[in-house]
Design a protein around this nucleic acid. Structure first.
Length: 619
RNA sequence: GCUUCGAUAGCUCAGCCUGGUAGAGCGUUACCUUGGUAAGGUAAAGGUCGCGGGAUCGAAUCCCGCUCGAAGCUCCA
């Protein structure tokens, strides 16, 4: 929650002397003693997320109360100690200056910002002399509290549903064969989640030069090195291709929206305010936290008949932004800026929505498998209102039956969210943290909210039912899962690796002596022309060292080139997966790789093909 | 916000308890080595030990304050 905190005191006098600068960005002023009499002193703490709007209303409230007590002189006194969630000094200073300039008809003074000051004041003894105010940021005030209030009223009933459609009490279910499901159930139902070590993928993402924290940005905004960018691009492309195959139409929508747009204002009632805010030319904008609004606003402007439905709009949002609390940001698991494939399907009625919902359930499962993730690593949770369950038991039982293992059920007495049914796949990592990946929802509310209409069979306008699906979940989170899986392999004594289609380098060529370099280059070129990511270790290192380095980079195929290979058709190809050296021709290697990466997207090597030319990114 | 941990070479870290103005490995550079499936050798360059203060003849090391970072908690419709 964002507020500006103000302690207001009506004083006979105040005297203050700036002593020394407390922060670097303190104002440059002449540190002279200052005395004011018959003055209202407003101690002001500007908090995170405060904006011009807050400043305007704060000064409004102050001048209103000053009128009541008949005082016309105001001292704005920056006072950080009123809050624990301070805004940055530059924001705070500019907002306090803004308050000063907005105070029409008052004599306003301002104590210097960023200085330790000694002060003395005498407060008057009348009832209105002391007053504290908390100014909330505009729309968020009501929406946040309303959303949170309503949220706390939700009554959830937790169960386990087995593939035969039977519901079991969570407390009595035998989890002995379903350890991860037990973790998820505890995680969700009991909200118990205590861990004291960093997740293993954080080390791996740095070591493999995939991604890193960017200290110059906000927390949770990562930078991706060439390797990471390549992996991300490939996953993005894969998911996009699969959604288009299913029937989605790819669109692109803005990343920021006007909070005062009528559709947004009511949408905010459904969300606790946790977005980045941007002020521009008097507009209060926020960065999107999902692709929903963009696609809804687009669909609203479409002329649609029932014959056009289901209409599937898809966007891969780079980025969506959610200002999660700093403490909950860990590696790639949870970010403030993330890439989210988001596909909405507008359906003409519940029958069509259910049919579409089934399709997308299959799509999501297949995408997850395609990404190299095993369904055994996932636990499904399905959530619905009691009413929906009684009317649509068959659908729910069908989905659970299809998955073929018990799932966690959350049933709500009443509908609070915009959806009546939702499922998601959760990955449970080695530390017992559960993270959602794929998800789909049946939304019965936003068609109307966004005034999306279609003309039905009777030539009447109607609002569609909207499905919200992310077949893979956030791309960064997919990377997190792949790395966590690899870390688990490593811990259990297996070789960690990425799927071959995602490997930044698929084939490394190592010459025994520099004289074989040109042969190696030709080999690398030949492989590259066949759309294989191959590179050449041209450093002056021993063969042993070069192989070791290739191993630590998790490179699948290593080809050592010496006299033998230059003079024969066969190559010595080390396959990291089996740990054996194979005698193959280049063509045999190509078809082997093609077979394993069949149907997956390809991008060219995203680094110099000469290892010696690469900057060192991490140890 | 709370709890814990950390800040020393480009990177990863040791040294701190028991004070005597800096060490290793990796990386980089040069030279030697011409190698056959997980680390060839030698050498060089490279650091106001996060900032400020205190006690001490003397501080990376002890004490106090601060800043920044990380992880965990809270949170995660």
């Amino acid at each position: 929650m964002q507020t500006m905190r103000i302690l207001q005191l009506h004083c006979d006098y105040i005297e203050f002397t700036p002593i020394r600068k407390e922060i670097k960005s303190a104002e440059e002023i002449d540190p002279a003693k200052m005395r004011l009499e018959e003055v209202v002193v407003a101690f002001v703490a500007v908090e995170e997320g405060d904006n011009s709007d807050v400043a305007r209303r704060a000064i409004g409230e102050i001048s209103q109360s000053m009128q009541k007590i008949g005082c016309n002189r105001l001292l704005l006194y920056p006072y950080a100690h009123l809050s624990s969630k301070l805004a940055s000094p530059s924001t705070a200073l500019s907002l306090i200056k803004e308050m000063q300039s907005l105070a029409d008809g008052l004599e306003v003074h301002r104590a210097p910002f960023g200085w330790t000051k000694s002060y003395q004041l005498q407060v008057k003894g009348h009832p209105l002399a002391e007053n504290s105010k908390t100014i909330m940021a505009g729309d968020e005030k009501e929406s946040t509290s309303e959303a949170l209030k309503a949220e706390s009223k939700i009554q959830s009933y937790w169960h386990i549903m087995t593939p035969d459609g039977k519901m079991h009490d969570v407390g009595k279910f035998d989890f002995s064969k379903y350890k991860n499901l037990e973790v998820l159930a505890k995680y969700e139902a009991a909200k118990k989640r205590s861990v004291d070590e960093p997740p293993p993928h954080v080390k791996l993402m740095k070591k493999l030069a995939i991604a890193d924290y960017e200290p110059a940005s906000d927390a949770g905004n990562m930078r991706f090195f060439p390797n990471g960018r390549l992996i991300k691009s490939l996953i993005e492309r894969y998911v996009t291709e699969r959604v288009i195959e299913y029937g989605g139409f790819e669109v692109e929508t803005p990343i920021m929206y006007d909070s005062h747009h009528p559709s947004m204002e009511s949408y905010f009632n459904r969300f606790p305010a946790r977005q980045y805010n941007v002020n521009s030319e008097g507009k209060h904008l926020f960065l999107r936290f999902a692709a929903c609004f963009g696609q809804f606003l687009m669909a609203k402007d479409f002329h649609m008949s029932y014959k056009n439905l289901p209409l599937r709009l898809y966007e891969l949002t780079r980025y969506s932004f959610r200002r999660e609390q700093s403490g909950e940001l860990v590696g790639l698991r949870r970010l403030r800026a993330f890439t989210m494939p988001d596909c909405h399907a507008m359906c003409k009625d519940m029958e069509q929505a259910k049919e579409e919902f089934r399709k997308r359930f299959d799509l999501s499962r297949s995408v997850i498998r395609g990404l190299g993730l095993d369904e055994a690593d996932f636990e499904m949770a399905i959530r619905f209102t009691e009413e929906f369950y009684h009317e649509n038991k068959a659908l729910i039982e069908e989905l659970v039956g299809k998955l073929g293992k018990p799932v966690l059920v959350e049933m709500w007495k009443e509908r609070f969210f915009y959806f009546v049914l939702k499922w998601e796949f959760n990955y449970v990592d080695s530390l017992g943290k559960a993270s959602a990946l794929s998800t789909d929802q049946i939304d019965v509310e936003n068609g109307k909210r966004y005034n999306i209409e279609f003309i039905d069979e009777e030539n009447k306008p109607r609002f569609p039912i909207i499905l919200h699906n992310s077949p893979s979940g956030a791309i960064e989170r997919v990377m997190y899962v792949l790395l966590e899986k690899a870390a688990k392999d490593q811990k259990e004594g297996r070789k960690p690796s990425l799927p071959l289609w995602l490997a930044p380098t698929q084939v490394r060529v190592i010459p025994v002596r520099p004289e074989f370099m040109s042969f190696c280059e030709k080999l690398v070129d030949g492989l590259s022309q066949k759309d294989i990511r191959a590179d050449l270790d041209d450093r002056n290192e021993s063969v042993g060292k070069s192989i070791r380095d290739a191993e630590t980079e998790w490179i699948r195929y290593i080809i050592v080139i010496g006299d033998k290979e230059v003079n024969a058709a066969k190559l010595s190809i080390r396959d990291r997966k089996s740990g054996t050296v194979k005698e193959w021709t280049a063509d045999e290697l190509v078809s082997e790789i093609k077979m394993e990466t069949h149907g997956m997207p390809f991008f060219k090597l995203n680094m110099s093909r000469f290892v010696s030319k690469r900057p060192q990114i991490m140890v």
